[in-house]
Simulated scan of single mutants.
Amino acid sequence: MQSRDIQSGEVKITVKKVHVQGRGAIVLTGPSSCGKGEIAKALQNILSIPNERHLSMGSILRMTIDRARNDQAFKEKLSADYGISYRKSIFDLSLNKREHVLKAEKYKKELDDYCVKEMISQLDWLEFCVVKGLLIPDLWTIKLIDAIFESSPELQDNIFILDGYPRTSVAAEKLLGTFLRYQIPLIKVIHLSITKEEMKKRAFERKRVDDDDESLERRYEFYIEKVHPSVDYMKIRLGSSRVALIDAHQPIYDQFDKLDIDKSIQQVALKVLHELGLPSYLLDLK
């Protein structure tokens, strides 16, 4: 606490970190390139949430593969309870959806080189997709979310951030069911919003190989057709007070009229913190 004018009673309070306690999920959602990952990291830093409690779909997939490699019981559970088996071939049409088999067949040679084994299992295919950055079947992502929460008491007993999930209304319904089953409160859904033009601008600035105009159009269309309805579904189920729409485009410029990225991210993070219920005197963060 730093006093600016003791006689008038004016006091400036600067807070660098807040240590949160309790249980529950903070869900971040929105279109591609809206800054979910950056806002999640800012919230982690301010609220003292460790890295292992910032879950993105990517981190969940990597966590699943790591546990399956090192924990035989978890590996067996994936097979028995969640339908992702290390004993069943991904190329067997009687055990897999045709679209999944056809996709795996496109990568047959790479799969053979990667796995170097006689039978390429469903679990092998999952690992290959994670390593190569390929899309995972929707049904599997829903099952993996459930598997991770069932086997992670540290998530059931603490506050965590879920970044970029759910992406469809069906996934939202399943997620709320999972939270109910393990009695995990959903603290707030933060819907970060940007225009299609701003999404494209941000994507082109980060210069990813797959960020061409056509793919970005598809991603925004997916957001409008799938992600946005999933937010509406959660609003109906949870009540409008539990879902906050926040403008993720709040640029701050320095004295030379150059975008200050860090301050811009912090500005959005402050809006999120306000929606999470932190009192205004704690939001003068440096």
Rank of each mutant, 00 (worst) to 15 (best):
D213H: 11
A147Q: 07
K41C: 12
I84E: 03
D112Y: 07
A73P: 01
G30M: 09
Q21N: 15
C115S: 12
F256Q: 12
A80M: 09
K109Y: 07
E275K: 12
G30H: 04
V11D: 06
L270N: 08
F179E: 07
I252G: 04
R87Y: 12
K235D: 11
Q250V: 08
I261C: 01
L283N: 07
D71V: 11
L144W: 04
G164Y: 00
Q44T: 08
N96G: 10
P185S: 05
S230R: 07
A68V: 10
E150F: 06
A40E: 06
S121Y: 04
N51T: 04
V18G: 03
I148S: 05
I224D: 12
I190M: 01
S48W: 04
V268L: 09
I246P: 04
D232K: 11
M199A: 09
E76G: 00
I90E: 03
V27H: 06
Y86T: 02
L134T: 00
I184E: 00
T14W: 09
E10I: 15
K196P: 03
N96A: 06
G239W: 05
P50C: 02
I49C: 02
L126C: 07
D163Y: 01
K41N: 15
Y182W: 09
D124L: 10
I26R: 08
D284V: 15
V227D: 08
P137M: 07
Y182S: 03
L126N: 10
I261T: 12
